[in-house]
Design a protein around this nucleic acid. Sequence first.
RNA 1: GGAGAGGUGACCGAGUGGUUGAAGGUGCUGCUCUCGAAAAGCAGUGUGCGGGCAACCGUACCGAGGGUUCGAAUCCCUCCCUCUCCGCCA
Length: 429
Amino acid sequence: MLDIQFIRDNPEQVAEKSRQKGYDVDVRQLLGFDVERRELLIQVEEARRQRNELTEQTKGQKPSDEQITAGRELRDKLADLEHKLAAIDKEFTALLKAVPNMPTDDVPVGATEAENVVAKTVGDKPQFDFQPKQHYELAAPHDWIDKERAAKVSGSRFAYLKGDLVRLQFAIIQWVMQTLGDEKVIQKLIEDNNLQLSPKPFTPILPPAMLRTEPYEASARLNAEEVTYKIEQDDLWLNASAEHTLCTMYWNETLPEAMFPIRYLGYSTSFRREAGTYGKDTEGILRMHQFDKLEMEVFSTGETGLQEHLLLVAIQEYLVQQLGLPYQVLQKCTADIGKPNARGIDIECWLPGQGQYRETHTADYMTDYQARDLKIRVKRGDGQTELVHTNDATAFALGRVMIAILENCQTADGGVIYPEVLAPYLVKG
RNA sequence: GGAGAGGUGACCGAGUGGUUGAAGGUGCUGCUCUCGAAAAGCAGUGUGCGGGCAACCGUACCGAGGGUUCGAAUCCCUCCCUCUCCGCCA
């Protein structure tokens, strides 16, 4: 959630920027509750002070009848005030949580995702002297994707991936782990982008794939209706991305400054309900209920948060470039960056078979918005504690990057020439 | 699934109704000592919220939420979580 002090100081700005993100927030009402809450809080605290004073007087001895009577009166008065405060507080908190994070100044203002801005286009689209196929057409003769049987067993938007496609996925995983674990690579990307950051490599991490409601809600990432599966029987949610169990990892913790930056490369199978997408992308494996993803998650101090975000985007571009895939970088507009995000970048890879760019990566910068509710803090050297800043970014959504590889690297006879960087990691069939 | 134990500060760990925001230890910070470091000694060191220009004051927090009481970390109720043993199992 957002800092209430910031909202008090900048009510118009908060209202305006919330509107830009598509959130109709009644800041005036929120601040009304805020004032009311504080007035009541002062009364409650005064009543408590009186009670504590009385308790202090009677300490270690039997209280007199007079003192007991006074205590009872105070108790009842306090109970009444506390109930009033609790009611106001509930309204206040609900409204406060409804306020989205503020976009940074360079986020383009837009009402729909159509107003995302192409920041740059990189790489040459491959030229074919034949009609390029879509990924599922390329996969068909090899029997790499079996959706029919998956539908029989699990339903629509599930697949059995087979053979070389599976070998390709594991090769990508190994290669990315190797690359992001290499301090020299990180250092070079930091220098190339004029960033002042630690070259600390990413630690690979296999997080849990399910999480409880309380931390999930605190992460501001729970989207129950459209995205997330629930295991009702055990009151657990299925990861829609590794970031959900990564960003919640240090929930309710204060960490020493020396730990930062914390850079994780998480791998998780991701589950998405895809409600409301019926009929969209039904062919192939572009939009599935289940897919595997390598996700970067970074916890940092406030002053490096934005730079870490820029580093994550640089890493994304580097990885895509290494695969030789043409792509464009989208600066997501206010309507598309999501409630907890201050800034968001999408990378779209060119899919020759489809003849269009499709989203393969996202990078999200949450400032301290996510950490405030998750209560993740850093204890600085001078003893001060501050909220951390969080960043998450796709390293690779494996299904989608494999689509891009198949379509971009296809040959006239329906084969695929895999990117060279993967060669050391590709197991022969 | 059966039986039991337990959730206290950055960490470990005392504490069963009133000088407990919380002993003791670890860690961290400062000082002393030292050429420097280590060791040792001394001192300091929680977070949130509210008020105040500030020094500071108040208040809350011992898993969460209720209750009993003049007064609750301590007693009662509900829930959540963790651990141990047995069973089952990749």
